[in-house]
Design a protein around this nucleic acid. Structure first.
Lengths: 114, 114
DNA sequence: TGACATTATGTCATATCTGACATATAGTAG
DNA sequence: CTACTATATGTCAGATATGACATAATGTCA
């Protein structure tokens, strides 16, 4: 898929949502990126709701704090596998994942459950 | 996550469904693997329904026929990113993806739509 | 202010994934 | 049988992702 474009996106600072428009990004490339961003938002939400620090999550994942940070920052260098693994480790179900992929759960609901 | 276990799984021939049991596979590792298998089944289904050959799909993805075959065979060497990209290229929507991840659409419905 | 916890950013060696290629194995038609 | 198309399997050099590490922000509490 040519990673260079994703790098450019990151560099450009871009507003979240509807990524595509600004460079010749194919329909499906854009969709994939938005999915990953949605997952990364879900990850931060879920981690915080569970009161887990990045360091703690890194331990559970046998990864490192810096990689968790990159995940949550939507860094292009993180794979979908890692994002999904992280959510699973935080107890997300397949249904939760499905919702996250759709873009659901992105914003903080005002009166969220624990 | 230690890829070695996945390799073993592949080597063992395993029956599809409920992968976990047989080696000390963590709950979430197993879930990830089952998700990927579900995606690979969806991929084959969708590709065939669309009457697209592996060679043709490879072209659209700028990948190669052998990689498509590996994807559909559930080879441990394929990333979730690639599986998802492939489905997207075949016109799958986020909702379709969500369903696939859940394990939905695994079996061929007898009177499926085009 | 300082001491501490948490998160962000950058770099790098190594592990893993990827496309390409060769080749094998069906299946089908002539 | 041959020729052709589709799919499977193995290998490998090059690309990308990964964990680890250092270090910089940022925040909090006294």
């Amino acid at each position: 898929m040519k990673k260079s474009k994703r790098e450019k996106l990151k560099a450009a600072g871009w507003a979240v949502g509807s990524v595509q428009e600004f460079l010749g990004l194919s329909e499906s490339d854009a969709a994939l990126i938005e999915m990953k961003l949605s997952l990364s938002r879900s990850l931060r939400d879920r981690r915080q709701r569970h009161g887990v620090s990045q360091v703690e999550l890194a331990k559970r994942l046998r990864s490192s704090q810096s990689r968790i940070a990159k995940m949550e920052a939507g860094d292009p260098s993180v794979s979908m596998d890692l994002l999904v693994s992280s959510l699973l480790v935080l107890g997300a179900s397949a249904a939760d994942l499905a919702k996250a992929i759709r873009g659901g759960e992105g914003g903080k609901s005002r009166h969220a459950a624990a």
